[in-house]
């Protein structure tokens, strides 16, 4: 069976959940081979969990290069050349999309970006914030596919995990240099794109301090916190929590929108949520058009009451 290359996404020795989704998805196409590009010692730390998620091979490319993203592209390009894989799978992220695009250019492969499902026949895209579903395929060998996190249910499987070390080719052309990094320190709340419940606040929340009301409700539900662009632009909440067309796409079991009008660009990032609850003072707010349950009212009255009710039920 042909190999499927899976780029391992890791940060500071921690593997991202999206990598396990890739390893699961890869099995529909062939035998998953994990590709680890990182500082010396990275692969040793990750090998066990990669095996537990079905990696038959683990290609280890260790480098202390400060070149920005081009080591990953170079390693994948030479593996595509040497192994003729059925496909290359990369998780959707800012870095993942760029690595995939560059790799497609270098290997002259079809780029299937931001897919939500992978099969032997092709891939599925969710377009315009879920308004369309499109089936697509590459017309070339070894397509480069980026998979949206949260689209695939992880299924662990035992893999042989045979390690093979591979060189990091010298950069083709000039690369940008990474002079320093400040990773985002994740709080105690679940990751926005992975959470099964998301509670978001909009401009209606009115201030950064009052976002506590959103956070308190979120915490009572074990939820992630999101925000509209207006709330982010007003400085109420940090940018990485923005939901919408130019922010994150979320598709949780439950999405609660507090003080969000429901502009089309916000809906593009959340309208595929299974159940949507909206609280808004304005009965005409467009968010009600897609809410399964809407409350016309003041979020500062409704949200704390809901939080107390949830607490009561949890005992």
């Amino acid at each position: 069976m042909a190999e499927v290359l899976v780029l391992v996404d890791h940060l500071e020795g921690e593997i991202k959940k999206s990598t396990f989704e890739l390893l699961t998805a890869a099995r529909a196409l062939g035998e998953p081979s994990a590709v680890v590009v990182g500082a010396a010692g990275t692969a040793a730390k990750l090998a066990d969990v990669l095996k537990e998620h079905g990696a038959e091979k683990i290609y280890v490319a260790e480098t202390d290069s400060t070149d920005f993203l081009t080591p990953e592209v170079g390693v994948l390009a030479s593996l595509v050349e040497a192994k003729d894989p059925a496909a290359v799978l990369i998780a959707v992220s800012a870095d993942g999309k760029e690595i995939a695009g560059r790799l497609a250019v270098r290997t002259n492969s079809g780029l299937l970006g931001d897919v939500v499902a992978v099969s032997a026949d092709g891939v599925t895209h969710s377009v315009f914030g879920g308004a369309y579903i499109a089936e697509a395929k590459a017309t070339t060998a070894h397509p480069v596919i980026t998979l949206r996190p949260g689209s695939v249910e992880i299924e662990p499987a035992a893999g042989a995990g045979v390690e093979e070390s591979v060189p990091v080719p010298a950069s083709q052309g000039r690369a940008a240099t990474v002079t320093s990094r400040e990773p985002i320190v994740g709080g105690d709340r679940p990751e926005l794109t992975e959470a099964s419940v998301v509670v978001s606040g909009g401009r209606g929340v009115g201030s950064a301090d009052d976002f506590q009301v959103v956070e308190a409700l979120a915490d009572s539900l074990g939820a992630a916190v999101g925000a509209s662009r207006a709330a982010v632009d007003s400085g109420y909440y940090p940018h990485q929590f923005q939901v919408g067309q130019t922010g994150k796409t979320v598709s949780p079991q439950l999405y609660i929108a507090l003080g969000i009008s429901g502009a089309i660009q916000h809906r593009a990032g959340m309208q595929t949520s299974k159940t949507i609850i909206a609280v808004n003072k304005d009965a005409e707010a467009p968010i009600f058009e897609i809410a399964d349950f809407g409350v016309v009212g003041d979020l500062f009255k409704v949200a704390p009451q809901l939080k107390d009710e949830i607490a009561k039920r949890k005992g």
Partner: peptide, 28 residues
């Protein structure tokens, strides 16, 4: 093109459900 769309369909838009006026018991 190195990739092609084989088919596409619009997804039926989500429609709204119940909407209530808060009369002090909205949260409940």
């Amino acid at each position: 093109a190195l990739s092609t769309v084989a088919s596409s369909q619009p997804k039926p838009p989500k429609s709204g459900g119940e909407k209530i006026e808060d009369e002090g018991d909205g949260g409940a």
